[in-house]
Design a binder for these strands. Structure first.
Lengths: 420, 420
DNA sequence: ATATTTAGTCCACAACGTAGACTAATTCAG
DNA sequence: CTGAATTAGTCTACGTTGTGGACTAAATAT
């Protein structure tokens, strides 16, 4: 349950409070921090001194704000010392991102690999190499990697770092965290949850939304007041198996008429005329290649590099050409998504719906159908139907969310880092 | 955001920690508390002294546990000083419960009233009388009522204490909290949420479950690790409007094929042969009468007294007689409930499903259909389908949850009470 | 009866935040 | 250009709270 609060815990909380405000507002003087937090100037000064010594915060010189009085010294979160790695294993690529404490992406590396028929051990070994190389590069930049999070496409047992069941990889009960053996703690999480967190920390600035990750499967991550909702066992957000039509097409989950049968990448491909699993996959070869990205010094919102999950571009080009089958498939997918989301909205009451993953590029062709379905199914009861918006992060979301999670932990509890 | 932690906040947290352990474990010595909390014996003694002085905890004499050494003095939560009122407005009754800090129900009073066509002002005035009488009785028992919570059948704006929309009462934007004008703060909450909390604090001892309240409407409350999940605006848990069949019968929410069209009390009544709204209601008269309960000194799990919401007994007697239409209606309701719950389970990942409200008495005829539907729709993907159990609280749940909420607040932050 | 064990209190001390005096660095008025 | 006003940040004495170990109390074991 709760923990006893001693002097050190009091200090830890106040350190977190100060760092949290610096993080939230970008840059601040000590005086402003005192005002905001309600702590005295004395205390704020001491806390800031500790944070500076730990390399979590830096002074950026005095500000001449034009007002009278002695100008304050502005501090901001330092991006020069602490960093984290975000890792992602997906069906057709591996990704590594290094993010510093100021949430600047310092390194992006994506490797296209067909993991559909690969052995977990091989995939993990390749990812391990990528991660170690990234850590070396981070060290060269003067950064200390304090932790990592791995995104996998499927439910995860957080406690043991085991992938429960990733149908699209063909994995069952794979202890990835243990297999990775990296020189820092690595937590494993569901890709859909991390994509939601990516949207929270690197996206449009919302702090209350349901983020829908359209991929080979369909997952969702719910963020309420800036916190991810996990459910009782960490398996919440399986939007792909919400019922759209109880007697619809059979789903691999055992149910019938699940959302995935209408709106997943494979369902869209099939309805557009391409057999599911065809396209760039399905040939069984374990291809690798096409490195995207590299080090990028500034800005957290660059256009997602690397490859897209699956061959959504194929469908997009059909849509742009006005292909009737493709348009109808999107219309149907949008309707199904709307039906499933109306259930979700009734159950979990999100503020906004953010469509990500393949729904990013497809948004022009499904967004309206989703919104229309929501309005017709929910409009009567509530003042306002949650708006449906599109994510700008694309494939980046999960790996960024993974890296961001470690950063978030440091910001939320800097004292844990000071002790080591 | 977070608050600065000063010495007083440290103390407040530790007081809560100690009181929380006493509450959770029933009775404990100071020495055991020190061991459990990690605080020193000195500190525990001081904290316990404060709690005793405030009347929140009492010593119950030394225990002779047979072991060697000086016997400890056992303390437990005191039920002799602090109390709370739980209030409930429902379609066909008003209820008041007084619960003391040790979670003993000290007073139950239920009044049958047909509120379907009554003015909000009249209903609130009647409830106010009931509440004030209950407070008088509490004072006679030496109790101080520190707060109250009101359960209403519909979504609520917690901040303003306004009932957003209670279709079964015909209420829209009614500021109940303000109308009540009781001599202590009253919070307003959705009945379904409070029923879930009632189950948490007075029910089977689970701390992770989705509680389904079958009434005129169908609501649900999700409890995760002992905390209610509210969603972004406090409207989470509208299970009644989860989609069962996207082209099913039209629902008053604007949707089609919502769960309420299959499994609500009215839907069951209609399918069994009784037109919805008939039975004890629908005659337009504003009847009052039939007081249930009274003061009951001990035990928190007595059989629910008072009247049942709606005339479910009528359907039960048909079922017991083997009426084919009634049996078929339950079978269908169970299936629909299973379909809606499978969506809910995929989305929010509850540990257990608890069926309450009318599903209590109907459980023998719907439980199996629900469980079977869940198994067939979820069994493939997961190791274990959440078990479906029945609540023992019946109509009591919401009013008890309402009263329990205040108690919970005191236990979670006793320092707030010490200052007044 | 005495040793042993456990419960609870007492007291000197340490950690941390507070309050207000004090110093530093700027703008504004003349 | 000088001094008053204003704001930022530091310094010091102090208050609150938890700690740790010594001490007292009350039981069982021998």
């Amino acid at each position: 349950m709760a923990q006893a609060v001693r002097h050190d815990a009091m200090r830890a909380r106040n350190l977190a409070l100060v760092l949290g405000e610096v993080n939230a507002r970008g840059s601040l003087t000590r005086a402003a921090l005192a005002e905001i937090t309600g702590l005295t100037k004395t205390t704020v000064s001491k806390l800031v001194a500790d944070l500076i010594e730990a390399g979590l915060v830096v002074e950026t010189g005095a500000v001449r704000d034009g007002e009278r009085g002695r100008p304050g010294v502005v501090v901001r979160v330092s991006g020069e010392h602490v960093a984290s790695v975000g890792l992602e294993i997906n069906v057709d690529y591996l990704a590594v991102r290094v993010v510093d404490l100021s949430r600047t992406v310092r390194l992006r590396r994506t490797q296209a690999v067909d993991n559909r028929f690969a052995q977990p051990g091989d995939v993990v070994a390749l990812l391990r190499d990528l991660a170690l190389k990234a850590v070396d590069d981070a060290v060269d930049m003067g950064l200390r990697v304090v932790g990592g999070v791995l995104a996998v496409p499927g439910p995860v047992d957080q406690r043991t770092g085991t992938v429960h069941n990733a149908p699209n990889l063909g994995w069952r009960d794979v202890p990835v965290a243990a297999l990775l053996e990296l020189p820092f703690p690595v937590q494993v999480e569901n890709e859909a949850n991390l994509a939601a967190l990516g949207e929270l920390w690197f996206g449009s600035g919302l702090s209350d939304f349901l983020h829908v990750s359209g991929e080979i499967g369909i997952g969702a991550g719910l963020v309420v007041r800036g916190r991810l909702f996990q459910g009782s066992h960490g398996f919440a957000g399986e939007l792909g198996h919400v019922v759209v039509s109880p007697d619809g097409p059979a789903c691999r989950c055992g149910g019938k008429g699940c959302l995935e049968q209408y709106a997943s990448q494979d369902a869209l491909a099939a309805a557009t005329g391409l057999p599911p699993g065809a396209g760039p996959h399905g040939n069984g070869a374990h291809r690798t290649g096409a490195q995207g990205g590299g080090a990028s010094g500034n800005g957290t919102q660059t256009t997602p590099g690397g490859t897209t999950a699956g061959d959504i571009s194929w469908i997009v080009s059909r849509l742009e050409a006005g292909d009737a089958a493709a348009l109808a498939a999107c219309e149907r997918a949008g309707w199904a998504l709307g039906v499933a989301l109306s259930s979700a909205i009734n159950l979990v009451d999100p503020d906004t719906i953010v469509l990500g993953g393949i729904y990013g590029p497809l948004f022009p062709w499904i967004g309206e159908a989703v919104a229309a379905t929501l309005t017709s199914r929910l409009g009567q009861m509530r003042d306002a139907v949650p708006p449906v918006v599109v994510s700008r992060l694309g494939t980046e979301a999960a790996a960024l969310g993974a890296a961001g999670q470690v950063i978030q932990r440091v910001i939320a509890d800097p004292a844990a880092l000071l002790q080591t």
